[in-house]
Design a protein around this nucleic acid. Structure first.
Lengths: 337, 337
DNA sequence: TTGTAGGCGTTATCAT
DNA sequence: ATGATAACGCCTACAA
């Protein structure tokens, strides 16, 4: 790779002049500029971004740290983040943490070491709690999950409200014994549980500990938890899950138990996926605008990179309830989306 | 961020000594090493990877360039790549090209500019063809798609064979008018079409141009193509698609046409997804070991980074046919997976 | 308008 | 065993 030095040599000027031509371009005689451009062309010169980054102490890379890119929620977010980044000439470093505090720490460290421009992060509760004690020389935008006393930009769903609404929907449709599966490492899981419990209490129904499970956001975990719930002496008449992976597992469990939906068991969950409307009956869910979330997060990050001093803002989004067959007894169709 | 200089100062040694302690660690008195480590500890020193990269002319970043991370095929691959990279202390730059030659060129250029250690790439046919005329200072591993006269490592499916097998399966089950939807920008699409046509010819059936569509790998494109096929004066009695996104679109089209599967129309496609077995009837597909593909690609890349001179190798994998209800008349159940 | 020179943080070479 | 120094490629005061 040709360096700026070689270009200077070929053009018969100093490296400073070449640099000037290539950056702002002020104070250069047209004729000299011409010569430089020809040399650049001839050598196929391209500025070395590593050198530039070292010199400028800046970077055009942003980090995206999520638990698992295979979770459709994060897949979509990642795509949005990359789109925005691309439009800004930024590049995206993808990191999967598997809800593992250790991996989170390692990746955060790596972000420091590589001097990224900023990161978009979806941390476990544990890491989130420790964030305020750490120092970062780059901005952090949280997605899906917050850190309590850490003043960072964030894009979040109103989880309590959403879970409350979803649970209430089930209750209103005559399902009184709702088994629920929440994430065990994320704040999100806790918040959704809160909304779930709120709805129960408001209907003067007991919160049955046995009906509440916390698992990893994985299909098998969801399936295992759902299976356990269905095998209870007095099994639930509805299942509610906190993300699309556990929802998928729950559906598998229901299928294998040969129960019919929603007669034997209702099902409802979080996050829209390709299959919720393809299966029979279609599944009731609260959808999040995932692409918008990623886009917003990336935009917040870029704004903050430009202006580190601006006050932090939390963007709180509202989930959208899609009532479908999995939770509506066939006689009472209230609304279908 | 503390630099090596400050560490040297605090430890009362030269930067060279600090560097020695931190790297190989030969030829340093234990006592001095001790002092250095203490200073490192005290200052929370971390080597600046950008500087290291500039100096060493190496990088611990690899690029992953795919058409769209939201294609489950690439989602899974990306996860595998990241896992292997992580294990090796490498980091992954994610790039979506949308089958856009221009974006591909921009990202390839970016990979040069940032001096990556290597890339894993799934190019369009057009870019693939031009690859051999370009020079790269880093190794390239191809996934899913090859470049004809470009001697790179590659991990591929035997597409012709797989499509042949899938088509033959349909033919053997009494479906003689097979509408097919292939990718329009990838070599993969062409290869699968080849296998499809081979199977038809072997059964002495005509290749009907009207029955063959080439589209982008997107749900809507698949749906549009499928809808068009279903509206033909003499519509096909089976649909075959080349990837999971167009498969999803095709299924939507079938549903909206109120046709029953497989009585009115059979359906079969490529790539396993969460929903193929959740829908009714379950969908016949050829599955690819996506995680394995990504893992293998990453391993090939790392091997080549270590030894750039080794001869290039193509790993060719065989797809696995999963025969399901969408392509088997209910009376004849040959085998179900 | 253009060139000289220093430094971003490392590491490797060469003295000592 | 340790230190001084140069160089990776770039940018930017500052000087001319």
């Amino acid at each position: 790779m040709a360096s700026i030095k070689e270009v200077a040599e070929v053009a018969g000027v100093s490296t400073a002049t070449v640099s000037r031509v290539l950056s702002n371009g002020q104070h250069v005689r047209p004729e000299v500029r011409q010569r430089v451009m020809e040399a650049v062309e001839k050598l196929g010169y391209r500025p070395n971004l590593v050198a530039r980054s070292l010199r400028s102490q800046q970077s055009n890379t942003i980090g995206l740290i999520v638990s698992d890119i295979r979770n459709p929620f994060f897949t979509s977010i990642s795509r949005a983040v990359e789109d925005i980044a691309y439009a800004q000439g930024l590049t995206v470093l993808l990191c999967n943490t598997d809800e593992d505090v250790n991996k989170e720490a390692i990746y955060l460290q790596l972000m420091r070491d590589t001097n990224v421009a900023g990161i978009i992060f979806s941390p476990t509760r544990q890491t989130a709690a420790s964030l305020s004690q750490q120092r970062f020389d780059f901005p952090i935008v949280m997605v899906d999950r917050t850190a309590p006393d850490f003043a960072a930009d964030a894009v979040l769903l109103d989880n309590v409200e959403a879970a409350y609404r979803l649970t209430t929907h089930l209750l209103n449709n005559g399902f009184g014994r709702i088994g629920a599966i929440f994430g065990e490492t994320s704040l999100t899981g806790l918040e959704r549980r809160q909304g779930y419990e709120q709805a129960l209490r408001q209907h003067n129904l007991p919160v049955v500990p046995e009906y509440i499970r916390h698992t990893q956001p994985r299909v098998e975990s969801g399936k295992a938890a759902a299976t356990a719930l269905l095998r209870l002496p007095q099994p639930p008449d509805a299942l509610l899950t906190s993300n699309s992976l556990t929802l998928e597992g729950a559906l598998q469990a229901i299928r294998e138990s040969n129960l019919s939906m929603p007669a034997d068991i209702a099902l409802a969950g979080f996050d829209e996926t390709s299959w919720t409307v393809l299966v029979q009956p279609p599944i009731t869910i609260i959808s999040q605008p995932t692409y918008e979330i990623g886009k917003t997060a990336a935009e917040l990050l870029i704004q903050r990179i430009i202006d580190p001093s601006r006050s932090s803002r939390q963007v709180m989004l509202r989930g959208q309830l899609h009532v479908r067959g999995s939770s509506t007894p066939s006689v009472i169709k209230e609304e279908v989306s």
